[in-house]
């Protein structure tokens, strides 16, 4: 399936976005939040867009990543790298557990299982107030400078340096995920999305592929959670709330699944619109709800799909391909 943007173009546009965001957005803090949520959305997109799995468990990994990084930095004097590694390890372990169990079921039962796990981990985090701070969250998380071989790369005190860290991590993960989805492993994932029975018939152990994709997705989301904790210097209980999963899912589908660049659009749109509209009108979520209904009914390719359709209509030069929107067209009442 050819897309409007080829992978290297997507990467170039994403790099450009990283440079432009802190300049065009009203604050560097907002740009940092955008980039962090794009990372979380990339993780979710890997599952929805490339394996066809809709996980309500993303908040677990976002929250666990945030807690693991925060606790490491709060209780020891190791560097920021160790905090991020702790987030990666913790979210990988939890994602392996949740993914191993959830992928036993398909379709809506998978969704319900991830939903149950998400609530379970929320109440566990709430109950373990001694560790997680419960309702208050973890406060005053240190943000040590990024040091490599005794050379301070980033002090992380000015907002732009925190943005730089998030941006570098984002670009690295974007390239990594592009490699993953264009690899034979990624092609197998897409085969599972298109027709799991056939993938099984060809001889793939689709369970294993789904679990690995789930862990990858959990780790990417966990890194986003860790960066969010570093950025806020605060790890609220809300990180692990199922509404965080919903937020990440909404960003993914709104931007467009089936292409990593969709996540860049979705994350940017949600965070920027959220920040700007909520300042003007506290009920902006009403608009978001209407947008979700329109996207779900008419624009199933999301923002990226809409852009592709527009480009095709204008140019008729763009690649003509069978879009997912055409094949998934909702069938109304006969």
């Amino acid at each position: 399936m050819r897309r409007l943007l080829q992978p290297h173009v997507e990467l170039a546009v994403s790099l450009a976005a990283v440079v432009v965001l802190p300049i065009v957005l009203p604050s560097i803090a907002m740009a940092t939040e955008v980039v962090i949520f794009i990372i979380a959305t990339l993780g979710c997109n890997l599952l929805i867009g490339y394996v066809g799995l809709m996980s309500f468990g993303q908040a677990i990994f976002f929250g666990v990543g945030a807690y693991a990084c925060s606790l490491t930095l709060l209780h020891s004097h190791v560097g920021i790298g160790a905090g991020l590694l702790a987030a990666i390890a913790a979210s990988a372990i939890v994602a392996l557990f949740v993914g191993f169990l959830s992928t036993q079921k398909r379709g809506i039962y998978f969704v319900m299982l991830t939903f149950a796990f998400s609530q379970m981990f929320y109440f566990i985090a709430y109950a373990m107030a001694g560790l997680t701070g419960g309702d208050n969250g973890l406060l005053d998380i240190p943000r040590p400078p990024l040091v490599l071989f005794h050379v301070t790369l980033l002090s992380l005190t000015p907002p732009l340096e925190m943005y730089g860290l998030a941006a570098v991590v984002f670009v690295a993960l974007f390239v990594f995920l592009q490699r993953v989805i264009t690899s034979p492993f990624g092609s197998t994932l897409q085969a599972i999305r298109e027709n799991e029975q056939r993938a099984i018939a060809v001889g793939y152990n689709t369970r294993n592929f789904k679990v690995i994709a789930f862990v990858l997705s959990g780790v990417v989301t966990g890194i986003a959670g860790a960066l969010y904790a570093l950025f806020l210097q605060f790890a609220p209980l809300g990180n692990i709330d199922v509404s965080m999963s919903e937020r990440i899912i909404v960003m993914s589908i709104l931007g467009g699944t089936g292409s990593l660049f969709g996540s860049v659009l979705g994350g940017t749109f949600y965070v920027v619109a959220g920040n700007m509209l909520s300042a003007i009108w506290p009920r902006w979520l009403l608009l978001l709800g209407l947008i979700l209904m329109v996207v779900g009914c008419y624009l199933q390719g999301g923002l990226l799909g809409a852009a592709e359709r527009l480009a095709r209509r204008i140019g008729r030069r763009g690649p003509r391909a069978m879009t997912p929107a055409a094949s998934n067209k909702p069938v109304g009442r006969p």
Binding site: E246, I249, L292, G296, C297, Q300, N328
Partner: peptide, 20 residues
């Protein structure tokens, strides 16, 4: 409209309705 759509769109639309 959504009975034949993949379930993620059913969930998206009903989440949207709940928000509205």
């Amino acid at each position: 409209r959504l009975y034949h759509a993949p379930h993620q769109y059913q969930i998206l639309v009903t989440l949207g309705l709940a928000l509205v």
